[in-house]
Design a binder for these strands. Structure first.
Lengths: 213, 213
DNA sequence: GTTTTGATGATACATATGTACCATCAAAAG
DNA sequence: CTTTTGATGGTACATATGTATCATCAAAAC
């Protein structure tokens, strides 16, 4: 047998090139030749590791998802224990907004894919439903726990609030990507809402929560 | 002089065809030939009334904006006077979500344009900032009036809440377009938030009766 | 009636793009 | 060494697409 190569590595390299290209020039401008150039490989190689452009697009989307999951896990792992509900939700929001470069790239390309999936039946809409759905369930669960602890305002529906937070995150993220708002402004709005949501009667549950001046 | 034609009418006809096509097969699938076929005219005519594809895209976007403004005005005009703040905001939300067919088409194509504008410097990002900005100011103004009347919960920042509502509307709209949520579910979430926002203090006031000083 | 000119049609052209095909190289197996 | 085969390069081909060019038609102006 001749030289063996780590296929997963090559595929990841090329998929990353696609994401970079899409983040820079738009997903609509992604082409086989463009991806090959960005990855600094020949077009043939892109064909070799991904049968067709459709497969490549799917693979890049899966990689995006994987990376997102990875980033989220890393952030969770880096948090001080025990993780309060407020801290958990704060972390979620920080990840939900396009702040630094990589995050911006991720959100931009992800949004592009989502927009594409609205009409293209080839592109499974599943990732755009399953992913957020899972996050929504986790968030709802966290909020429910907070509610049991009395940290959540009364008359709140955890499920509904979780869905709201997710939608709000996406909406604010879009406004940032379009250039309407700065990440800081978006963050401020989000935090204000959280302060309202977690408006405790008089008790401050855990250390590390932000206080308004 | 030979036969004269209403250029504005022809341009509107073709632009509408583009929007229909984009709503059905995606903005990325919009092509000169496709638009011509959808409008049932020759490609030459599309070239004749719009110099290039870029101009056509710009024109269609402007038309979208115009139609949106038109729909909003019509809804406002159809409301029973006097228009309470809550009713105003409700109307805004109803317009912000993709409910019926035309609304869905509008939001889908508008979102596609916005996604495109994130990377394409040709497409002025201005419409995606100026439009929402204006709406945001109007909303903020309405909320401020409501606050003066005591209809808004205390400790609320009208500006911030207006921005939140706009972002929330977009986020929920996207979740509907992707198929994650039904329009009804989105509407429910939105209404729940509004109920919270307009939660009157223990003052017993008749719902829907926001009197002006 | 002839001319003029706005409106419209058909088509050619250069280019971009996805994909298929053929060739080469090098390392492992015999 | 020879053979085998995974990895890679180069390129041709069919098609789609934006745009330019040539042609036609009909109504208004003379």
């Amino acid at each position: 047998m001749p030289k063996r190569v780590d296929h997963a590595r090559r595929r990841a390299h090329i998929a990353d090139a696609l994401v970079r290209l899409a983040a820079r020039e738009g997903l609509h401008a992604v082409t086989m030749r463009g991806v090959a150039a960005e990855a600094e490989v020949s077009v043939r190689l892109v064909q070799y590791y991904f049968e067709s452009k459709g497969k490549l697009m799917h693979a890049a989307l899966e990689r995006l998802e994987e990376q997102s999951h990875q980033r989220w896990s890393a952030r969770l792992a880096g948090m001080r224990r025990p993780v309060t509900t407020r801290a958990f939700v704060d972390a979620f929001l920080a990840e939900a907004l396009p702040t630094d470069g990589p995050s911006r790239d991720f959100h931009l390309v992800w949004t592009s894919y989502a927009t594409l999936a609205m009409t293209d039946p080839e592109l499974a809409a599943q990732p755009f439903v399953a992913g957020p759905d899972r996050l929504e369930r986790r968030l709802a669960e966290a909020l429910r726990r907070a509610q049991d602890d009395g940290a959540l305002g009364p008359g709140r529906d955890a499920r509904s609030e979780a869905a709201l937070l997710l939608a709000l995150g996406h909406g604010l993220g879009t406004s940032v990507l379009v250039g309407q708002r700065t990440p800081e402004a978006a963050r401020t709005i989000l935090r204000a809402h959280l302060d309202q949501l977690f408006a405790a009667p008089d008790v401050t549950s855990a250390p590390g929560d932000a206080r308004k001046a």
